[in-house]
């Protein structure tokens, strides 16, 4: 199963050949932003206190083979919409720490590992793309997943065309 976190409009999303094999959260998902309360670590471990449509995201992630992040570039990072979906993955992580790549990261809550795919769209200079790439690589280390796939597209139509190939 693929878990897709995206910010595409319904029309662009529906033209992509991903249907039936995925679970997607996007602009239609009604969810609050993560407030960093840490209840998902020390009060109801693994579960968010917010019982909105974002509640299930970390649970779906625990079963996913791939996490696909489709986002407009926002100053070298993900769009605020997609970041809201990503931040709600916090219950997926364990509060304890592990050292990976010589840095401190979070211990895994779940033994299984997924593959990370990033599809960034929107025009940006090389420095901004470099930053997005660095962020994607850092996220992969944080999630303890293998080397991620990272793609850049000038705009949504290029993305749709490439993915549909």
């Amino acid at each position: 199963m693929d878990l897709i976190l995206h910010d595409l409009d319904e029309q662009s999303f529906s033209t992509l050949p991903w249907l039936n094999t995925h679970i997607a959260f996007g602009p239609n998902t009604r969810l609050h932003y993560c407030e960093g309360c840490f209840d998902c670590w020390v009060k109801t471990p693994g579960r968010c206190k917010l019982k909105d449509e974002g509640y299930a995201i970390p649970h779906k992630l625990s079963q996913a083979e791939r996490l696909i992040i489709v986002t407009k570039l926002f100053h070298g990072g993900p769009s605020p919409m997609v970041k809201r979906l990503i931040d709600r993955c916090l219950p997926f992580f364990h509060p304890y720490f592990a050292i990976r790549n010589g840095e401190m990261h979070h211990k895994e809550r779940y033994p299984q590992s997924f593959k990370l795919v990033f599809r960034f769209y929107g025009s940006a200079g090389p420095a901004e793309k470099d930053l997005a790439l660095g962020w994607a690589l850092a996220m992969a280390v944080n999630c303890n997943t293998p080397q991620p796939e990272v793609h850049f597209y000038e705009n949504v139509s290029d993305l749709v065309m490439e993915v549909a190939k």
Binding site: F38, W41, V42, K43, P45, R47, P58, Y96, F97, R109
Partner: peptide, 30 residues
């Protein structure tokens, strides 16, 4: 920091091993 998490968990009536809770698709309805 890890001692701090365990302390907070105990304050919430949990045991340290409760921090390891995992979602189980068979028994949990997400």
């Amino acid at each position: 920091a890890e001692m701090g998490w365990r302390y907070q968990a105990r304050q919430n009536g949990l045991k340290p091993r409760d921090l390891d809770w995992k979602f189980d698709p068979k028994s949990d309805n997400p």
